[in-house]
Design a protein around this nucleic acid. Sequence first.
DNA 1: TTTTGTGAATAGCTTCACAGCA
DNA 2: TGCTGTGAAGCTATTCACAAAA
Lengths: 209, 209
Amino acid sequence: MRSHTIPRPAVQRISLYLRHLELLAERNVATVSSGELAEALMITAAQVRKDLAYLGQFGRPGVGYRVGPLGDALRHILGTDRTWSVIVVGAGDLGRALLRYKGFTRKGFMVVGAFDISAAKIGKQFGPARVQHLDEMPDVVARFNVRLAALAVPPEAAQEVTDRLCAAGIRGILNFAPTMLQVPPGVAVHPVDLAASMEQLAFRITARR
Amino acid sequence: MRSHTIPRPAVQRISLYLRHLELLAERNVATVSSGELAEALMITAAQVRKDLAYLGQFGRPGVGYRVGPLGDALRHILGTDRTWSVIVVGAGDLGRALLRYKGFTRKGFMVVGAFDISAAKIGKQFGPARVQHLDEMPDVVARFNVRLAALAVPPEAAQEVTDRLCAAGIRGILNFAPTMLQVPPGVAVHPVDLAASMEQLAFRITARR
DNA sequence: TTTTGTGAATAGCTTCACAGCA
DNA sequence: TGCTGTGAAGCTATTCACAAAA
């Protein structure tokens, strides 16, 4: 029975299981045990079994998990068994790096548009996309049925741009601006604060001595 | 009494409290209540009080928290009341964006070196740093007493580079490679997997309907 | 024998609720 | 009255430990 309450931390680990399964698949490994997955992810074997059991019955006692089918199942659960169109908003240094980031493509995220408001940037080609004015964004979102956006604009502009993204139909925002975004229900925000992450490291190596 | 077990999630929130306190300081706000901080961070007021109480007695009943002193205290706890030297390893798109990222500077992280192994990139100037060969890295780490590194190399190279970073004296690694890094005790790793983050968004907007 | 799936136990984190201070 | 600090309660997540399957 599929209880529809997969713990948040477990969902985050699904991406990591999948990452490792893809590595194993490349190496033509057919099966993997919870212990092996645990070692690769630096967690306990019990954790692995519990997580995977939330999603269904994928393992075979005495054998382990079949790499291919488990990978397929995890992709299906994450929703990445299809291609997602993504736009990048903000064509500063970070935005441009995101436009060219191969990791997205490899996972089936296809950048179909880049937006900014600076005349100096509009028209320039970065990676797969030519920068357009933000005013064109709703059009592109509608035409390509875009649901995901990476937001890399200055923090002062983040909320206003977010409102426009949500109005245009965006449902998930990868937020690189160091701000909390207000979004309507049904829209998900995943914050990525690079400076805050660096601070966490500073804390951890300061505290430990 | 300072119990030296601040919960991990609480430590992560410290960065967010600080972020908001800095905003308030800019606006010359003198005091802030747990309720106001809670609203800004989209958490409960009880959570805010509990978190801050782990760190000391900063609030005054009936008044709230004084913005300046609390900010100073949080910076001290995080270890960011001083400047940290940082190196960036890997001068691909992401590495170059990190080199120019203003958010680090604003928080007192100073990029003092950039490294790669590709002859095509060595010698080039990106933001504050000229790219050097990775072989020069231990020298720079020693000379500037660098403890923090941002790692933006291909996943195949990540572990080997990490070993060299740790040997050189790096104690904290912001890891942009989609790999689990093996590090000796005393070295902290903070993973940033952009593709995995995007997957989490895909999941959340897929699951919700 | 190996390894899963899972109830039970434990640990960790958040929220409640209220005494006490300004 | 307004707001903090905090024990107690409640909830969530992880680990244990073992029966059952291959």
